[in-house]
């Protein structure tokens, strides 16, 4: 009897501490709602990414412009920019076809933010860089080959 009561007290005490930490901001809201789509980030093919995102099969679109060097001497930092001219673009996903996991980065574009992002990515070898965009609830994709002379994923 006593044991049970103590266990119950412990459990309640534990919850209390968690709640207190959350309340004083020790547990950041960013962590609390970190609903990362792990399936998308571990996908090995465009089909798998599409499935993980619950997306429709993306149509190839000339309205997505990928800026990247034709030849990258250093695969460790390849500058890539994606600009979508498709109205209602609210998501941009940058993928590297031949990397171990395809998805490099995914961006949620708030209203009022231009569908135009630039970052730099690692490429293990010469590969297509893909940009998938959600615009007005539909998905579109474009690709561009980047030749890599020195890979950026190994040791």
């Amino acid at each position: 009897m006593n044991h049970q009561r103590r266990d119950a007290l412990k459990a309640a005490g534990g919850l209390g501490v968690f709640g207190l930490l959350a309340a004083i901001g020790f547990i950041r809201p960013e962590l609390a709602h970190a609903a990362r789509n792990e399936a998308a980030f571990s996908a090995k093919s465009l089909d798998a990414v599409v499935a993980a995102l619950g997306a429709t099969t993306p149509a190839e679109s000339g309205g997505i412009l990928i800026s990247a060097p034709d030849i990258a001497e250093d695969g460790a930092a390849v500058p890539v920019g994606v600009l979508s001219t498709l109205p209602g673009t609210d998501q941009i996903v940058i993928m590297v076809e031949k990397n171990l996991n395809m998805v490099a980065a995914s961006f949620v574009i708030a209203s009022g933010t231009m569908a135009d992002v630039q970052t730099s990515i690692k490429m293990g070898q010469t590969s297509n860089v893909l940009a998938m965009v959600r615009a007005d609830g539909k998905y579109f994709v474009a690709k561009r080959e980047v030749r890599v002379t020195l890979g950026g994923c190994g040791g």
């Binding site: 990362r36 789509n37 980030f41 460790a76 930092a77 390849v78 500058p79 920019g81 590297v96 990397n99 996991n101 998805v103 490099a104 980065a105 995914s106 961006f107 949620v108 574009i109 708030a110 009022g112 933010t113 231009m114 135009d116 992002v117 630039q118 970052t119 730099s120 990515i121 690692k122 490429m123 950026g152 994923c153």
Partner: peptide, 25 residues
């Protein structure tokens, strides 16, 4: 207090990641 851009990265983003974008306002 308004989120203008949210990004999720994998290990394929370069070390010391750079990011550039524009927003209205």
């Amino acid at each position: 207090d308004r989120v203008v851009l949210a990004a999720e990265f994998s290990t394929s983003v370069s070390a010391n990641p750079s990011l550039a974008f524009r927003f209205e306002g």
